[in-house]
Every structure is written in structure tokens, then in C-alpha cells.
Amino acid sequence: MSIRHGLLALLSGGPRYGYQLRVEFEASTGATWPLNIGQVYTTLSRLERDGLVTPAGEDDQGRALYAITEAGRAALERWFATPVAQSDRPRDELAIKIAMAVAGADVDVGAVIHTQRMATMRALQALTRAKRAADGVAQRLVLDGLIFKAEAEQRWLDHCEAVSKASKEKNA
């Protein structure tokens, strides 16, 4: 994704100026995706080059406004209609670490898993804390997405522990 589509989605609600786009983008993503203002203007100028947004004058304080074009709305619609592909994680460090720990002769797999579990739980607590403080449904749902992912990792770690323990006992 694309910051492009995020900005288009915000502009579909009416013309906005650059700083406003940055603030609204961060608010609706629960501050999980910080943007700098330079990225916003670079993206806007590319969108303008591609005919997806157009300058729309200034507001009463002289700030340059941008508006979405028909082509921009069509691009946004296509984006919403397209599912996101499961990204491959060929170099997921955690998976490799656990695999190597299990394969290694004298590694305490339980300890490796436990260390990770503690770290993931800490991350999960921080996310939950942010969710409690979040205002706005969009922000909360973005944080929920991260919470579900962290939870999936916890469950996978429990699974790794149970399976590696069982196979060790079988081989003993």
C-alpha cells in the first residue's frame, strides 16, 4: 500500500491541505504508521502527475488544497475492491530462530520460546494500552489488527513448545 491510496481515501471526503492529510492519516491508523510531511507532499505531487488529484485553490488561511479527481475515485474504488495478497515472509527471523533451535543439539528450545513469549506479551500489552486510549473506531481497528497478529504469534509459540516437547519425549 500505499500512502497513495490512504491519501486518496481521505480526499474522497472533500478537499484537504497537506498537513491536515498527515494528521488524519496518522489518527485513523492509530499512529502505527507515522508519516512525515515530506512524504505527504511527494505523494501528492505524484498523484497530481498521474491525474488522480488536482489543486483546488486555497482555504481562507492561504493553505493549498487538493481534491480527488474522477480518475482518483476510480483508482480508490479498485483498491478497495482488490484483496491484499498474503505477503511472503521468506526471511521471518523468528521462524528461522525457532527452526534452528529445534534442529540444534544443545539449544534449550523452551527457553528460546519463553523469551520470545515474554517479549510478544509485552508488545501485546503496549498495543492494548494504546487501544484503551484510542478514540475513533478506525484507530481502534488498526490496533486490533496488530493485536490479532501478535496473538497469532503467541499461539504459534505455544504450539511450537508443545510439539517440540512431545517430540523430544518421544525420542528420549
Partner: peptide
């Protein structure tokens, strides 16, 4: 369920009737 445990101030893991690292989180 980890997602609910994450609401806690402190998470304690039990393993075979013993606390595995109390207050670790």
C-alpha cells in the same frame, strides 16, 4: 487467550504447577 491477558498489569505463566518467571511481563 493472550489478547485478554494483555489487559493485565502483570502476566504470570504457570508450568507444571510452578510459576515460570513471575512478573516477567
Amino acid at each position: 487467550e493472550p489478547r485478554y491477558a494483555a489487559w493485565a498489569d502483570r502476566v504470570v505463566y504457570l508450568r507444571d504447577g510452578l510459576i515460570a518467571e513471575a512478573g516477567g511481563v
